[in-house]
Design a protein around this nucleic acid. Structure first.
Lengths: 411, 411
DNA sequence: TTGTAAGCGTTATCAG
DNA sequence: CTGATAACGCTTACAA
């Protein structure tokens, strides 16, 4: 069997041997060399002129007269024309035979022959070349804030599961708190021609969304949505979730209720505060300014710092509603350090029901959100946008519910 | 300014109008149409022959005489030849002018002109086309077991951070417990011509590693390594970590020590058990078969089930050393259900010092591993392999140390 | 049903 | 320093 795997400098070397002009393509060289046989020394000399040595030549695996292949040789991967040549058919026929959707238009005999040869020589279609021709990379970009934040893994997993058997791959980026970093990631995704983008970093007025839209790339937002509703979004019902939680806190008899809220630039932070306010208002309970701590970055440190302040108030709150579980962890740490007992002295609630919250002490009362499902729905929504079904941009809402544990006590 | 963005059927339509043979390329059409002006009706008729309507034509945004662009028009992105035409230079010059590493060989005036025009028309190089020519996608594939397992997020983040400013992007896949799924993910990554692959799923005899190696793709393994040392690996020192932990348990006075081990097919599971055994042996303590539970999938359920069995033994252990934190969580749950107190009745230890372990009750005594750093080192190792520096395949070991909390008590 | 040939957008090489 | 050209590997409209 004759199989040539030629890369650029080797081609030059062989061309020189064959007296052909330089820089003709692999297949052109092939048609020449397959009718002649080179002495290794000639090829070697020409390769040397190109600054390459035998070790390099070996890497190119010239499997032809005068060269004996070795175990360590690096083969250039076989391409469609290799299969075609060995199967005595045209490359286009190979392409069709290997594509399940077109296979029906090819004779069974050829399909069988091509498939066998492709397997034999280990042909794998070059997806980059295919993307170039078809314009689709079968890859989607996902930008999250930080995978280390425990809400993102289930989102990512749900998304991957949703798109996996359509053959899509996920390109992941962590935007962090830097708008530049997130923006750069999206730029690169766009340059790599992803078929779609999922943002889990969306703020209410989001330049990132603009960018994706400007590039005309199907885009969906997870967990948050832009104010103008310009992209399909899949979110949990933050307002309702926080209303339920606040209602629950009130029903437990708390009257002095504080809230450590998240950034009001994100729909999640915004809506959760709305939920707290609306429930409190409905019960005629006030939320004085000193009981409301709005954090820029809803992390553990922020929860810690805010709680330190809240607990040093002359009349501290009896319950602290935190925007999420991580902030609640910070709040608990502050309690521990101040010698304030939770839930005896102060109740603390979280949001998201992240893994492990059931194991912390005391068990955290929080709001369960099905992130895996949100990821799944976001994946499906993106798929249908990619397939061109562009139903009205909409906001899908996944319900969430309170999970009662021990960090909230009845007074 | 004249800018044409043509896709295939539109090209056919215009070719037909211009009397050119069908299926000539966008640039060929351009040279014709820029000297003529089409009546919209003609183009429309030809487009209709191709089964396309005006809405579609609009999407193609034929910005030329006879067609008025609208807000809703989807533009085909500008390409290098557009920039070249507007700048009155050759495409190759544009390519050079826009590449910082080659910019020095181009006159400043052209660099300035080209850069300005590229910005003006929003030209973004098509990375897919570049990849095709250069053979490098500037993308790496990462296969983890499951992002939901808390050890992976810091690995992923560390990796991304390490490669980010070299312009590499990360393609992520969750292999799960299915070898087929992981294998399929790697296949797709290879087809997409990733520049390198990072595996965090490696088992001692790993077909996945074989596959990557066969494809001649730079590969490194994180957190685990293959028995034959065929790829560079970055791992934490599991033997030493477990020795330290076991020693610590022994020093706390425990004599009846059980171990819930992980799968022995993975270097991590294997080495951790070795560590336990070696420390126990050194202190002359026996590890009877009924005290050793080897799990296939070291998850919470496995820890729960194994602990249930251990605690129902006639003489149960006083300490249970778990292969990881998640298994330890399962063990704690079992204790709670059986009404056995931890650490009063039984001590439990974990491994990995995953986020939140400090907040669980009782605080989990475990082994701290710097996963972020492992990810970082893996990223650097991969980079140097990609850049062709192939230092000896080696195993880099990151030390780890015991973190004492409350789940282990002195007896 | 199969072959033909052009084209996707970029960049490496050669020629001036 | 710049322009011209061909090539990367695959798909697809069209011709046979």
């Amino acid at each position: 069997m004759f199989l040539f795997h030629l890369n650029e400098p080797l081609i030059c070397a062989l061309c020189a041997c064959a007296g052909r002009r330089n820089r003709c393509g692999a297949d052109a060289v092939l048609s020449t060399v397959s009718t002649r046989s080179f002495r290794l020394t000639d090829v070697r000399k020409q390769a040397a002129n190109n600054g390459q040595d035998l070790a390099w030549l070996r890497k190119c695996a010239i499997r032809c007269a005068g060269y004996e292949q070795r175990e360590s040789d690096k083969l250039m991967p076989p391409k469609i024309s290799d299969v075609a040549r060995l199967a005595n058919v045209h490359p286009s026929t190979v392409s069709r035979a290997l594509d399940p959707t077109k296979r029906s238009r090819i004779s069974d005999e050829i399909v069988a022959r091509v498939t066998k040869i492709a397997n034999d020589i280990g042909y794998r279609p070059n997806a980059v070349a295919a993307s170039m021709r078809t314009g689709s990379t079968r890859t989607i970009g996902v930008v999250v804030h930080d995978v280390n934040d425990p809400i993102y893994p289930p989102l990512i997993k749900g998304l991957e599961d949703a798109v996996l058997d359509t053959g899509l791959m996920v390109m992941l980026g962590n935007g962090g708190f830097s708008a530049d970093r997130a923006s750069g990631l999206v730029d690169r995704m766009i340059a790599r021609a992803v078929d779609g983008i999922v943002l889990a970093t969306t703020v209410l007025d989001d330049p990132l969304v603009e960018k994706c839209l400007a590039a005309k790339i199907p885009t969906v937002s997870m967990v948050r949505y832009p104010r103008d509703g310009s992209v399909t979004s899949v979110v949990n019902d933050c307002v309702s979730g926080m209303e339920q939680m606040t209602q629950h806190v009130i029903e437990c008899g708390h009257q002095r209720v504080a809230c450590i809220a998240g950034p009001q630039t994100s729909s999640a932070g915004h809506n959760r505060l709305i939920g707290v306010r609306s429930s409190l208002h409905r019960s005629g309970i006030d939320l004085p300014p000193e009981f409301l701590k709005i954090t820029d970055q809803p992390r553990m440190e922020a929860g810690y710092a805010a709680t330190m302040e809240l607990l040093s108030l002359a009349t501290p709150p009896t319950a602290i509603i935190c925007v999420n579980d991580v902030v609640a962890m910070g709040a608990m740490r502050a309690c521990r350090e101040l010698g304030v007992s939770c839930p005896e002295d102060v109740s603390i609630t979280g949001f998201n029901n992240v893994a492990f919250t059931e194991f912390v002490a005391p068990g955290l009362t929080t709001v369960a959100v099905d992130f895996q499902r949100i990821g799944d729905l976001a994946g499906r929504a993106l798929l249908s946008e990619i397939e061109g079904k562009c139903p009205q941009k909409n906001i899908q809402t996944v319900p969430c519910h309170v999970v009662s544990r021990d960090s909230l006590r009845v007074i």
